[in-house]
Design a protein around this nucleic acid. Sequence first.
DNA 1: CTGCATGCAAACCCTTTGCATTGGG
DNA 2: CCCAATGCAAAGGGTTTGCATGCAG
Lengths: 171, 171
Amino acid sequence: MLSIYPLDNFGFLDIIYLKIKIIFKGRWYAMGINSKEFRMTKPREVVLAVLRSRKGHLTADEIFEVAKELYPSIGFASVYRSLRLFEKYGIVEVVSFGNRRKKHYQLKNRRTKVKIHLVCTNCAKIKDFSERNKEVKRFLKEISETLYNKYKFKLSSVDMQIFGECEECKK
Amino acid sequence: MLSIYPLDNFGFLDIIYLKIKIIFKGRWYAMGINSKEFRMTKPREVVLAVLRSRKGHLTADEIFEVAKELYPSIGFASVYRSLRLFEKYGIVEVVSFGNRRKKHYQLKNRRTKVKIHLVCTNCAKIKDFSERNKEVKRFLKEISETLYNKYKFKLSSVDMQIFGECEECKK
DNA sequence: CTGCATGCAAACCCTTTGCATTGGG
DNA sequence: CCCAATGCAAAGGGTTTGCATGCAG
């Protein structure tokens, strides 16, 4: 069932789940896939908005905190449920870090097969390092070939956590 | 306080925590650091033995199951406590995989800054890929320099999870 | 005798689920 | 009107902690 509704912060990710964006009377609208399977409801919209507002990984409770400001009646369960749904739809991806307990959620970048995080072992801060520089690109290409030739393992994506000491902590 | 006790499966890792190994009457013995801080007790020995017996990552309950065979009275808590102690001492390291719940534990290889796991997104099997081939080495060297020059981030180690489809699943 | 390490069970944290209710299509 | 999505609270899974006891030094 198709539906049309306004969007104020239209990002590239909307294309993934909304299929079509249009302008009507000077405002962005989205023609959505509001099907039985996937209805873009307020809680889901808010979770997505929170993820989009920050560039990187957030824990579920961080998302919940910010989401409550945008939509106070939202519940914890909806946040988790939205996240899992988004993961299923390839909109969100989950990252874990070594011995840390909480999972981190972030928007999936369709273009990068690789996600890289710099994890400071001193102050515990985590920073994205998603840039596809030439080292990363070359490594990806080579390792992908090696794995296929040697192990018949067909690489689809890579998670990388780089541990070390960040600039502030070195001072 | 020094103590001497026999060891049957003496591995290189013992050097890390035991400092000295000796032969007495044709058998390996270890002269240990049985201090207040770190006493090599039966449960700890067993956990270590289990980790050594398998090459790769194990979950806590997998470790517990095998440990019980070696030492039936062992408790869950001791397994976890040993693991955390070993982690603190740099003997064990913890790895997490994307959205999976359980942590995996494995002996830390002092030589490799990089640990790489091949994770099959179909059958969920995880395989070590610790070999330090030239692609990995070069990438490590380059990325380490880049990070330092650009972000003043001093790399100490890297965790990598490579997702994809394994040989059996492709068939 | 002293105090660390243990085993047990209960607590804990994060995440998921059951259920009655709501509200959009 | 129907059924998927919600919020609440309770359950669940994995890990940690409190406590009485055991045991090595």
